[in-house]
Every structure is written in structure tokens, then in C-alpha cells.
Nucleic acid binder design. Structure first.
Lengths: 155, 155
DNA sequence: TAATATAGGACTAATCAGGTCGGAGTTGGG
DNA sequence: CCCAACTCCGACCTGATTAGTCCTATATTA
């Protein structure tokens, strides 16, 4: 269904919280989890993973917790999604490796790759900082051919 | 991982084939499956589903098979994906139903909904007919703010 | 030293995609 | 007219992926 995993959802929530609402010293995984009503131990894992990859910095001990290790406006959603869910791909057959077995006859590979690129660029263009902004005035302009356009404009 | 299911892959292949390469009278599920080296019975199921939804028409019997029931240029990829994979949603919490339980505190819902809309519009803009076209000159123009843009342009 | 925090592995449970099986309808040859 | 081949049809099963839990180790502070 073209869905992000829940881990990614949780990761986005936590990062967005750390980027805006969190107290200066950061926040513990447990505190964030309680704030949003999500499983603490699962969020902890996600944050550990994000810490290993350099998105957040961890502080052990009694008043420890996590805080952002990079400015929110330098972190794209694509990075976050890839960090948690792995490299984002629309189709099962990854671009180069796994030559898709008998799919030498595959006639939709290239068009789908283009679709993937466009979706990727949507995610690359939005940063963690923008995730909170109310005023989202970014229009999407896509020029296509065929009758589907008319349907799109009619909405 | 933001992935389409294999069913959708198979469905796209089959529809694209029916739209362009198939003989006039249509083609059987088995024939298409052999053409692309995919499980015949699985593709059959996908085609059955597409038949119920009016994308293709089925003809039983000895020289039966499927043929497109609508012009290829009136079928958007979004329609196909939704038909097979279900309503496309980025997050687990569907827009209106399932108020996300304790996610009244969810601060990323609206931004993610916008992301979803953009991805949806990418899929809505491309039709089955365009899936085959070689000359794909559709540029994507997205204006954003913040430093992520610079990174994007640098590619 | 006791309490609290992250680190990280192993384990279980649930969900879903992928694949399979038998049945029902349609056509065409004998 | 009837049988056999071919096709669609719909329910079932299974295995992989995901979500979530548990336990232990390590570090830090009061």
C-alpha cells in the first residue's frame, strides 16, 4: 500500500519533537514515548538506530536522553525514511543488483524508476524543520499528457 | 520501504501488455504470465480483481482471456495501485477513520498528509498509456525552502 | 550505591503478501 | 448432443516481514 513502517512514523514523531518542542537538554526515549502514547522500548530502538547514524546524540545516565545532532533544516525526510526503513524503492527489483531473474522482458521497469525518482525528490525536498511549519506554500507542478490531466485539474 | 506489492507490479505489467502488445482479441492470464515469467495463478487473481473493478473485461472459454475495458489513456497509475494495493496511504492511521487511538497528540499527521497528496498526484498524473512512451519529458518542479534544496540541486 | 538512562541482543506474536488448490462456467470438436 | 479442453473464479494455506517484548550490560548522576 505504499506505506511507511511504524518505526518510521515513530522516528519522525520523535525527531520532530526533538526539533521543536523538546526541552533544551533533550528528552529521554521514555518521555517521548509517553508523550505520544507509543511503545517505549520500540521507540528506544529507533532512537538508538538514529543515534548510530548521527541524526541524534545520546546522553546516558540519570538526566540523559537524546537531542538532535544536526540542524533540523539540514535533515530531509528522505534521509530519515532511508535510515529507518532502508533504501526506498517502489518495486521489488532493486535498480542494479538482482537482475530481476526472468524480468529481462520487464517493460515497466524504466517508467517505474522515473516514478520512484519523483517520489524520492518529494521526500528529499522537505526537511525536518518544514515538517512543523504551518504555512506550506510549496506547489507541485507536474506536466503530463493525456486525459488524466483533466481529471486532476477538475478536483 | 515505501514499496508497491508484487501484485501491483504484475498488474501493471499485464495492463501495459494489454494496452500495447497484446493481440487484438486479448490475452489469457496464462499467456501473459508465461510472457513475463511470473506465477500464472497469482496473475490470474490480480486480473480477476481488475475485472471486477472494470479495468479489464474477461472472456471465459477456450479462446477467452482479458482485454482492456477502458482506454489506456484514461487509466492513471494511482487508480491501478489503489485497485490492487488498496487506498494508498503513507501512514498507518488512515485519514479520517481510526482516530489513531492516543494520537490526538500527533504533530506530524498534517504534514505527512500533504506528502501523501503530493505522491498521489505523481501517480495520478501518469496514465497507463504513458507508461510505455519512450519520450518522457515531464519535469517535476517543486519549490521548497531550507538547505535541503541546495543538496537537491547539486545532484 | 541506588536510581535512571542508553545499548543491544534474542525472542515471541501478529499481520500481510505471495503462492496454491479445487471448483464452476464456456467453448469447440467428435 | 455430449464430452473434453480451456478459462476464469474464489477460498485456502504458508512463509516472510513487521511490530512489539524481555532481559542483560553499561554509563552517569545524586
Amino acid at each position: 500500500m505504499l506505506r511507511l513502517s511504524k518505526k518510521t512514523d515513530y522516528g519522525l514523531l520523535a525527531l520532530q519533537y526533538l526539533a521543536t518542542d523538546a526541552p533544551a537538554g533533550g528528552a529521554s526515549a521514555r518521555a517521548i514515548a509517553e508523550r505520544y502514547g507509543i511503545p517505549a522500548e520500540l521507540l528506544a530502538k529507533v532512537l538508538q538506530h538514529l543515534a548510530r547514524l548521527g541524526f541524534v546524540a545520546a546522553q546516558k545516565g540519570v538526566h540523559g536522553g537524546y537531542h538532535l545532532a544536526r540542524p533540523a533544516r539540514t535533515i530531509s525526510l528522505a534521509e530519515i525514511v532511508e535510515a529507518i526503513d532502508g533504501p526506498l524503492a517502489i518495486t521489488a527489483c532493486g535498480r542494479h543488483e538482482e537482475p530481476c531473474e526472468q524480468f529481462g522482458a520487464c517493460t515497466v521497469r524504466d517508467p517505474l524508476a522515473r516514478i520512484k525518482d519523483r517520489i524520492t525528490s518529494v521526500l528529499q525536498t522537505m526537511t525536518l524543520a518544514e515538517l512543523t511549519d504551518e504555512e506550506q506554500t510549496i506547489p507541485i507542478v507536474v506536466r503530463g499528457r493525456g486525459e488524466a490531466d483533466a481529471r486532476l485539474e477538475a478536483r
